[in-house]
């Protein structure tokens, strides 16, 4: 357990370094004088730009050697001083607080939807390998996996928002606006987790302890609940760790498509607007969110299956 924790801490450190270095380079490689640009962003293009730029240069220490500036940059990062947005001038941290809430809810509901669909479909398929439910589930899963999240998002939007007019196509705030984004990600996650569940269940139902429990006369429901689900749950939860990549990438894409005011949406916006502090803040939080999800999955897996792992 402690080893996992250390590993995840190291991962968080690497994420911070990679994002910080990339954004530092980004800041220095943007065309033109950064001080001039920041001044223009703060005071508008018509102000007395040269004097304003001089003040910004001194204030931010842009006249010092690059190496010093880089260390300074990393120091700020370590103290969670993420600077101000070049576009709005607001502190990055303030904006991130709001957006992180939205994204975390989206991720939560996406996982919830996937856990509602995936394991259910998987258990149905796994109880009778090769049966109708199994084959239908396989076909659906293969099909869904070939649909990139942005296509799935647009497809659901066209069907439920444009066609049936049941749900809003975009926005954030009400429960109804959460449905389509969460469903998009949930379906994508369930496409894989249903098959993982199916394989796990198919394996468990042929295991000696399970067959014995059936022979001693346990009713089917108690059998599945007591001897099937917990054993089958381990690989499914462990697989969520792999799916964390899909989840985080999907959050970026789905938020952008549904105009959902979360971190992923902000990241894409910041890239288009070349707002480097916002790029840094959002990329950092998304990366750390990824580390946090994997760490949580590690912990739950260890709790479900306390046997020490060899790998």
């Amino acid at each position: 357990m402690r080893r996992f924790l250390l590993l995840r801490l190291a991962q968080a450190g690497i994420v911070t370094l990679v994002v910080g270095a990339a954004c530092f380079a980004l800041m220095r490689m943007l065309p033109g004088d950064p001080a001039m640009r920041i001044a223009a962003g703060r005071y508008g293009p018509d102000a007395q730009i040269a004097q304003a730029a001089e003040r910004v240069r001194l204030e931010l220490g842009l006249d010092r050697p690059l190496a010093v500036q880089f260390l300074d940059w990393l120091g700020d990062l370590a103290r969670f001083d993420l600077g101000h947005s070049l576009v709005t001038g607001a502190p990055v941290l303030e904006e991130l607080k709001v957006q992180l809430g939205a994204s975390a809810w989206l991720a939560f509901w996406a996982v919830a939807v996937s856990l509602l669909i995936g394991p259910l479909a998987g258990v149905l398929a796994g109880m009778r390998p090769g049966g109708m439910a199994d084959r239908a589930g396989l076909a659906l899963s293969i099909g869904l996996r070939a649909v990139p999240p942005f296509l799935l998002a647009l497809g659901l939007m066209l069907v439920f928002a444009v066609g049936l007019r049941l749900l809003p196509a975009a926005g954030y705030g009400t429960a109804r606006q959460m449905v389509l984004p969460a469903l998009t990600l949930g379906l994508g996650l369930a496409a894989v987790s249903s098959r993982v569940t199916r394989n796990a269940v198919a394996t468990v139902t042929h295991a000696p302890h399970y067959l014995f429990a059936r022979h001693k006369g346990l009713p089917e429901a108690a059998l599945i609940r007591r001897h099937g689900l917990r054993n089958a749950a381990t690989p499914v939860i462990a697989y969520l760790g792999v799916q964390a990549i899909y989840l985080v990438e999907g959050v970026v894409v789905v938020e952008s498509i549904f105009a959902f005011p979360g971190i992923g949406h902000a990241l894409v916006h910041a890239i288009v607007e070349r707002d480097v502090p916002m790029v840094q803040g959002t990329a950092l939080v998304m990366g750390l969110m990824f580390v946090a999800i994997t760490a949580m999955v590690d912990a739950i897996t260890a709790w479900l299956d306390p046997r020490p792992r060899s790998a």
Partner: peptide, 17 residues
């Protein structure tokens, strides 16, 4: 190092340039 970040984030960071 590459695996520490989801791939799309890395691509996005590079695309920001």
């Amino acid at each position: 190092i590459v695996l520490a970040l989801p791939g799309l984030l890395l691509v996005l960071l590079l695309l920001a340039f």
